[in-house]
Amino acid sequence: MSVIQTQKWLYDFVDRCKEKSIMDMASIQCEILCNPLKKVFPKVNPQAMQYELLNHGLFEPYEWFKTEAIVKEMEKQNIWKIIEKEYQYLSKLWNGPNVPIYIFPIKKGMLGFRKHLRKNGVAYKEAIFLFLSTELSKEEVKAMLAHEYNHVCRINHIKLAPDRTPLKDSLIIEGLGEYAVKELHGEKLLAPWTNLYPFDKAVDIWKRHFLPSLNMMGVKNHQPYLYGQKGSPFPKWIGYYIGYQIVNSYQEKNGPFKNNELYKISTDTFINGSKFPTKE
């Protein structure tokens, strides 16, 4: 199992929406796009899965009228073939697990809204979901897959359930994902948050707020630390920045490593061997 041909699902979704009332769009989306996911996530209710995917970037049901044109353009760009070929390359490079990859259009938001997402992804132990626009270069698509598939490799290696994952592991998972982008595609495709703050400022936040909380369990509890939160001590993307800098500085001090070695290093080894202090 690798890249799922979700374009067939998407065309079916559009055809069904053409026949139904606008009140049915959400249920049609859930039926066609989320019900098949029960094979991979048997314990997750399809409605809960739909809610989860919408939060990560899945197009809104009311955007059905744009979906057909978007999918045709994505097919023209060979998105499914590009991702399939790159996945085969990465799985051999990292000796990683075999997981399904689901590709969907990303939500654009309200009509006329000037800012919209171009890409987003989410990785689980069992699967990857990529939410894409038609505005991405081939290199951007490859870099995004590298980030998300590296997550899958790390998550399967550490074997921790989401509710039993400490904050320190969430930081390293994100840091490794973006370091994989640097290693494979160079600094030009790194996310802006990798260079968002002066290192000294990040170290101060690390000592004050991250060190005392490194063993906090549950990925849902990690969101303010990773993404930042208005009115809190955590600026935007601070946890992502710190995670990347830990991995990057560890590699600089202790590398180089073979392609499939880095994601197998323990979290404590990364932290202790990085430029970040281990005491407040």
Rank of each mutant, 00 (worst) to 15 (best):
V141Y: 06
H56E: 14
K18F: 02
S21P: 00
K92I: 05
K72M: 14
L90F: 10
F257T: 04
L145I: 12
N259P: 03
K182Y: 06
E126I: 00
Y240H: 03
G121E: 06
Y149S: 11
L226D: 04
E63C: 01
R154P: 10
I28K: 07
M110S: 08
E73T: 15
E139D: 13
F59C: 03
R164K: 10
F129P: 00
H116K: 11
Q223K: 11
T134I: 11
L189C: 07
I83H: 08
L214S: 05
L10I: 12
L176C: 07
N55D: 15
T194Y: 01
V181R: 11
Y149K: 13
K236I: 04
E140Y: 00
Q251Y: 14
F210D: 07
H151S: 12
K125T: 10
N195A: 11
C153I: 05
P198S: 02
F276M: 07
S249E: 10
L37T: 09
A26I: 01
K43L: 14
D24L: 13
H147P: 08
F104H: 12
G228M: 06
F276P: 09
L176I: 08
I32R: 04
Y240E: 04
I271S: 06
I128S: 06
Y89M: 02
G239T: 11
S213G: 00
Y240R: 03
P100C: 13
H222K: 02
M23L: 13
Y250C: 04
K125M: 12
V141Q: 07
I32G: 07
A146K: 14
K138L: 08
F210L: 05
F59H: 14
S232Y: 04
E75M: 10
K138H: 09
V14N: 02
Q223M: 14
Y197A: 02
Y225M: 10
C153Y: 02
L190I: 00
N248K: 13
K138A: 05
T6A: 09
E84H: 12
F257N: 12
E52T: 08
P233R: 05
K107T: 12
K115I: 11
I265Y: 11
G57D: 05
Q5E: 15
K18A: 00
M217S: 04
L53D: 07
R208L: 15
L196H: 08
Y62G: 01
F104P: 06
I101N: 03
Q50E: 13
N55T: 09
G177F: 08
I246G: 06
M23C: 04
L58A: 12
A127V: 02
I83A: 03
K168C: 03
Q245P: 00
